[in-house]
Structure formats: structure tokens, C-alpha cells
Design a protein around this nucleic acid. Structure first.
Lengths: 336, 336
DNA sequence: TTGAAAGCGCTAACAG
DNA sequence: CTGTTAGCGCTTTCAA
């Protein structure tokens, strides 16, 4: 260590940490110089071992491919940097086993807290984390009955806005395309939003057109083709996910249905390509960046709090972005 | 600690690490049970402090938005998991200052090695890392004269294949659209590939149509509009980046030029949306996942080697994927 | 104003 | 087969 200056490591430590309230300017300068010269890096492991705090947080994602998550990750990364934290990342790939393994690894590594998009299939794990007051912020999906912080987007509302927009623009036979995953609240909520928008616009349960498929490349395209051949009078599709949207468009074009004349499509999640599709896609935008940012801020607040704050749920608002894929723009809504 | 079983921590440590060559089945079982019961997590910090090895590697990216990097990240993540490493991540956002800061933070945290897409503007930093034999793998971009591992894609070849494909399919006035960044080798190499393909097909320097713009949202669209208005006879565009491609298509459609009849477009990098554009996009695919995977494997090999291996450069091959945006498919090339 | 010593949780060397 | 001891690099009393 830099005691080659002729002083004890205590002094060095004090200087490094700003505890040099009682230190000669002179020695201080000499130490700083030596540090510079030796290009000294304090060992964060030892520091963490002593202080029981690492200034590292972990994030468990379940899907890297979907660009929605990269925007969340950006928010997370920026918030970490702003707060002086470093970030460990891993991908559960929707596998509960992996998820549990990664959480344990994070704890082993003494991360100060975890942000997680949960598979929602590890009730025991989540409960244990909550019970031990381990700092945890769940994002995007709700874990029923779990006493911890959540940052989610209002999926019922997002779906409602989407379907309402279609109906208000004269569409009569609106179908919803969604993934089949009983564990994940988002899909159920978006279907609920569809249903309530339909009912609110004077339709009945008999008018519901719900198409579900496994979350597996190509499955949704197959399902869409099958459904649209059986119900060619469908004049609008509310797609609940951006991958679904791409497969759906492929199916629709393959059937030579014109968008938006024959059939309108509204997608979920803003992406770099949405506005470049033909026609440009009307979508529901979710504030992913904000979700990541708020999750980290909440987490760090919890970590640093003397008394752990009450679990708090932040619900972010989705937003309609109107482009061309649903036909005429009626009101004064912005076109981007 | 779990000495509540009535044994010393040495024994526990040995059992945890598989050094129980000389341990009674009986005590072993009791310890394992206690560990389970207490839900004990060995402190990786202390372990790392002792062994001077953390089994964590760091990755410094420069851009999270571009989906190319998420495929790299997937490769990195999978390779880490396979090797039992954890991953710290950060984003330099092309800022050399941030890059340096993050590298130092990683070193402070004693990560065993770093994978980096460099800004290429920190010559001193890179040199210091190489000189101190710090395990480092540079990806995607080359750092001139740096003695360390590189994993890159052959950009000259990728560009050559693209432009050659255009020329061989009857295009006569081929332009290339690229970003302006003197530090980054990739752009220069792709321009070189363009030039050599042009020359190899009997064109001269006078036929070069090179359009460059700042890497800033909207700039390329402006540049494209300006260029295409001045040179409406351009019948093909080689776009060197997927964001450029999106902006270019926007410009082309705005001018009402038909793709591929009036003008062909070939893009760089495969993305989820390439095949869903109208028309589906012919592109040069770079093996991002493999790049990430190989980078991590190389890094870990270096970390674990007794004697540091010689710096090694892996050059991956780009690949042409033919779709509709360049007109008729001539030979037997696959359509995806 | 500075230093010496103890201890964070773990492992490795050496005894027993 | 198991326990004792020392020490990884740091911070934190307490003493000088």
C-alpha cells in the first residue's frame, strides 16, 4: 500500500474517505501524490467486507431480446451511475430455476439490493426475500400478495386506450392477440382492458375475439393466420406485445389484407422501428426508461434508509401514439 | 456462522468447497443440513479478498439502444453463466471520460477481467491495461497497436459483399451512407470495402458516392434527403448501420422513390424487424452473439491461464442475407 | 495530528 | 479426520 510515503495506512484511509478533518495539508498532499503515482485502487472487496455494503445492485431480467427491456436497462444504468452504484446483470430467460440461482448468487456477492422482472414462479423465493427485508424492487409484473416495492405500468389502462381508440375510429370487429402465460399478470391485465373497453363501447362478451398463443417464435403467426382465415371480417387487431405485432403483420400481409383499409393494427411498446413500418404503427407506449430509473431510485432509497420504508407501488401511465396503422386520425392527436 | 453444528469453520469451508476428501459422511451431512436450515450464503467478498479472484467480469458497452449490442450481451451472458462467472455491466455512451471512470471502478471492484467496446479515445488507459497484463478483450472495434485480445467482424469484407451484391444485380450508381467518427475503425473499414468492391467491378474513384453524417438522430435523414435530391439517379444505397437504414428508408419514402424498383437498399446488421419492413430488407448479418460468447471465453481463458497467452485477434465473418429490398434474387441464395 | 491493533468472513498451512 | 492460526485490505476504535 501507499505507506511508502512514510505514513500509516490509517492516515491514508482517512484521507481517501474525506475524514482528514485533522490532517496536515502537507502530509495530505504527499499521500495524494503517492496515490496518483502508484495508480492505487482501493480494494472495494475489503471495504465491502468491513462495511457490509458494496454499492452494487443486481438486476434480474427475463428477456434481453425485447427492446423494451433495453430501455429499462438504460434507465437502470443511468440511475445507478447518478447514485454511484455499480450494476450486476443477469437474465433468467423466464426460467424459475435460473432466477433463483441468480438471486442467490447476488446475495452471495453481497449486492445491496435487487431489481427484478420476476418469472412469478418462485413464490417461496420472493416471500423469503420480503420476509428478510432484503431490498427488492419488482418491476413490470405484479407478484400477488408480496410485501415489497413494485414499479409497474397500468396495463388495463393501456389496453383500454388502445381498444377504445380502435372502436372510436369506427372499427367493429376488434380482436386481441396475446401470449399465453398464466403466471404473468401483464397479459391478463391487457385482456381485461380489452374486455372493459369493448363493454364500455356497447359490445357484449359474444363479440370478444381473443387469440392466444405460446410465446415462441412463429407460434403467433400461425395462430393469426388460422384466426384470420376463419374470421376474415375482423377489422382491427390489438396486439399486446411488439413481437406479436411483427408476426401479426407478417400474417396479415401474407393474406393480402391491406393495413389500415381492411384491417387496423395497434401495437404495444414503442420501438425504433415502429414509425418505419409500412404503414407507420400506432402503438401504446410504456415508459420503460422511467420504470428502470424509478426502480433503482426506490431501491437505493430503501437501501440507505435507517428504517425500511413501507412497500410502495408505483404505477406508470401508458400513452397512445397515433400513426397510420389504424386509419384516419380523428382528433388533434399528434402524429410522430 | 454455521458452527452451531459444533464443528469449526474450517470444516465447513472444506465441505463447501469439495475438499472433504477426508471428512466423515456423518459430520458432512450434519453441516449440509445446517447450511440448508440457516439458508447460509458464503460471503463472496471475503472469499475474493482471500483468493484475489472474484469470478466476476465486467463489460463496458458504448450503446445500449442498438439491438446489435443486445445480441452481443446475450452471448456474453450465456458464456458467463456457462463458466460460473457473474457479470457487471456499464455503458460508456461513447464518452471517453465515462469509459475511464468505469474501467477504474471495475478494477476497484476487483473484477477478474473486462470485455470492452472501446470509444477508442483513451489510448493511455488501454495501454496501461495492456502493460499491466490486465485481462482485457476488446470487441467490435480495433485499437491500433494495442497488444491485447480482439474479437471483431471483418468489416471490409461485409461491405464488399454488400456492394458487390448490388453491382452484380445490375445497379450502376451505388452510394454508401455512413457515420462520421474518425476514432472508430468500423466505419472506415466499411467505406474501404465499398471502394474496393466498386473498383473490382470496373468503376473508378469518380463513381464513388459517399455520404457521411453525424451519429445523431435525424442527421442521416437530412443528409440522405439532400444527397438524393442532388443525385436522383442513385439506384442503390449501401447503409452501414441499422439506424442509418431506418432513417434512409424514411427519406427514400418521403421522396416517393420505390424500393427496390427505383432504388435498392442493403442494410447492416440483422434485427428482429429487418424481415418485416416493406419490402423485407436485404442485409449483412454480423454474428453478434458469437462475438460476445467468444470474447468471454477468450477472457476467461486468459484469466485462468498460468502464463498469459499471446494476444490473439479473432475475426468473424459477416454474411449476406438476401430479401427483397435489392430487387430480383438472381442465384440460388436463400430467402428468409 | 497520527499510529497500533482488532476484526469483517473466508481459506490455506500446519498441527494434532 | 478435524481444529488452530494467520492473513487477504480495509476501517474503526482507542491510545499516544
Amino acid at each position: 500500500v501507499a505507506e511508502k510515503v512514510g505514513v500509516s495506512k490509517t492516515t491514508v484511509s482517512r484521507i481517501l474517505n474525506g475524514n482528514y478533518a485533522h490532517t496536515t495539508e502537507e502530509t495530505r498532499k504527499r499521500v495524494l501524490e503517492a496515490i496518483e503515482e502508484l495508480d492505487y485502487r482501493p480494494n472495494a472487496l475489503a471495504k465491502g467486507l468491513k462495511s457490509m455494503r458494496t454499492n452494487v445492485i443486481g438486476i434480474v431480467l427475463s428477456n434481453l431480446k425485447n427492446p423494451f427491456w433495453t430501455s429499462v436497462l438504460e434507465g437502470v444504468e443511468d440511475a445507478c451511475r447518478a447514485a454511484g452504484y455499480n450494476l450486476m446483470i443477469c437474465n433468467s430467460d423466464e426460467d424459475p430455476g435460473l432466477e433463483e440461482q441468480y438471486v442467490k448468487q447476488f446475495q452471495t456477492r453481497q449486492v445491496d439490493g435487487i431489481v427484478m422482472n420476476p418469472t412469478v414462479r418462485n413464490a417461496g423465493l420472493y416471500k423469503k426475500l420480503a420476509d428478510t427485508k432484503y431490498p427488492l424492487v419488482v418491476v413490470n409484473r405484479k407478484i400477488p400478495g408480496l410485501e415489497t416495492h413494485h414499479v409497474v405500468v397500468d396495463n388495463v389502462k393501456g389496453a383500454y386506450i388502445a381498444v377504445d381508440h380502435l372502436l372510436k375510429n369506427g372499427r367493429k370487429k376488434v380482436a386481441v392477440f396475446s401470449y399465453l402465460n398464466p403466471y404473468v399478470s401483464t397479459w391478463k391485465e391487457r385482456l381485461d382492458g380489452y374486455r372493459s373497453a369493448m363493454l364500455a363501447n356497447g359490445y357484449s362478451e359474444d363479440d370478444f375475439r381473443i387469440v392466444e398463443a405460446d410465446q415462441q417464435t412463429g407460434k403467433m403467426k400461425e395462430a393469426a393466420l388460422r384466426f384470420l382465415r376463419e374470421h376474415p371480417d375482423t377489422d382491427a387487431i390489438f396486439s399486446t406485445n411488439n413481437m406479436i405485432t411483427l408476426e401479426t403483420i407478417e400474417a396479415v400481409k401474407q393474406l393480402n389484407f391491406k393495413i389500415p383499409d381492411h384491417i387496423a393494427i395497434i401495437g404495444y411498446d414503442e420501438t425504433v422501428w415502429s414509425k418505419h413500418l409500412d404503414p407507420p404503427l400506432t402503438i401504446i407506449r410504456q415508459p420503460g426508461y422511467e420504470m428502470g430509473q424509478i426502480a433503482v431510485q426506490t431501491l437505493i432509497r430503501t437501501i440507505q434508509a435507517k428504517r425500511k420504508p413501507k412497500p410502495q407501488t408505483v404505477v406508470l401511465e401508458p400513452e397512445l401514439i397515433v400513426r397510420k396503422s389504424c386509419g384516419t386520425v380523428t382528433d388533434s392527436q399528434a402524429i410522430c
